[in-house]
Write a protein that binds this DNA or RNA. Structure first.
Length: 281
DNA sequence: ACGCCCACCTGGAGGC
DNA sequence: TGCCTCCAGGTGGGCG
């Protein structure tokens, strides 16, 4: 589900809601998350209980909730995860796996809920003094928005790759934040065939692609994310970016460029890939 | 080191 | 109605 724009939407909303918040209790479901690993409840409680939320940062598709205990909670939403913010007394949604009760000076108690039906997500504690050692973070490639990716920046990350450009865009160790939807959309906008060998793309084409990546991600954020199945923001509301998608999920449809092409669906590295064979070369 | 396959999990959609 | 198969926005382990 969530790619960079969805995660950034969650970051902004949650940071606003949690301003001045203090965590007073942590509950977990006991079910394992990513790699069938159980959540370390003791570490989570030690880091969170009594701690004030300072800010929330995003690194690619990861969120870091910075606490004044010196620790951060590292969260990844996987395929089906969401972070909700609700009244403390409101019933927890099905598939809630972590809940943080939060007190604030000027409002009633609230609760942050990590909800993840498929349990591909991640919730773990990070010591900020050693954040650079966190393996999930240290393998990440360049963030395409901070600062906005350009042609040379993209070329540097692609250098030497003999894989297809679509595979490289999904490789978080190169460019970190794109997922299947935005990769397809960026390649359409840049008129590049997803099967093209990444290392053989000319500098001018990479410049166009870098601009397309920035553009589709910024539009995604402006539209508060893409909701195809179950992505929702902390208030439980869907995004609207799905109405702007030009190829993703539109197989058989005619190309929005009205060039006579029909959107095709193929598999690239086992993932559904949508493109127009007429204008994407 | 790199590239590829697949498992991890639940639920929704479509076919029969 | 029910049962079965396939598919999904991500990631990392393990293989050759």
């Amino acid at each position: 589900m969530p790619e960079l724009p969805e995660v950034e939407t969650v970051r902004r909303d949650l940071e606003r809601e949690l301003a001045d918040g203090r965590m007073v209790a942590v509950w977990t479901s006991g079910k394992p998350l990513r790699l069938a690993r159980p959540i370390d409840v003791a570490a989570l409680r030690a880091a969170c209980v009594g701690a004030r939320v300072e800010k929330i940062r995003r690194r690619a598709k990861y969120l870091l909730v910075d606490l004044d205990s010196g620790f951060s909670v590292l969260v990844h939403l996987g395929m089906s995860g969401s972070l909700r913010w609700d009244a403390h007394a409101a019933p927890r949604p099905r598939h809630t796996h972590v809940a943080w009760r939060v007190t604030q000076k000027r409002r009633a108690d609230g609760e942050v809920r990590f909800v993840d039906p498929r349990r591909f997500g991640l919730v773990t504690v990070v010591d900020r003094a050693h954040e650079d050692r966190v393996k999930e973070l240290k393998i990440l490639g360049v963030d395409p928005l901070e600062p906005p990716l350009d042609g040379p920046g993209l070329a540097e990350r692609i250098a030497g790759s003999r894989r297809s450009i679509k595979e490289v865009l999904l490789d978080q160790t190169r460019v970190a934040g794109l997922g299947n939807i935005y990769a397809c959309e960026a390649l359409f906008q840049a008129k590049i065939d997803p099967r093209r060998s990444a290392g053989q793309l000319a500098a001018r084409r990479l410049e166009v692609l870098a601009a397309a990546i920035v553009s589709v991600l910024q539009r995604g954020i402006a539209n508060r994310g893409t909701t195809l199945r179950d992505y929702v923001d902390p208030a439980g509301l869907a995004g609207t970016n799905q109405t702007t998608l030009r190829v993703y999920g539109r197989e058989g449809g005619s190309c929005p460029r009205a060039d006579g092409g029909r959107i095709r669906r193929i598999a690239v590295q086992g993932r559904a890939t949508f493109f127009c064979p007429s204008c994407q070369r």
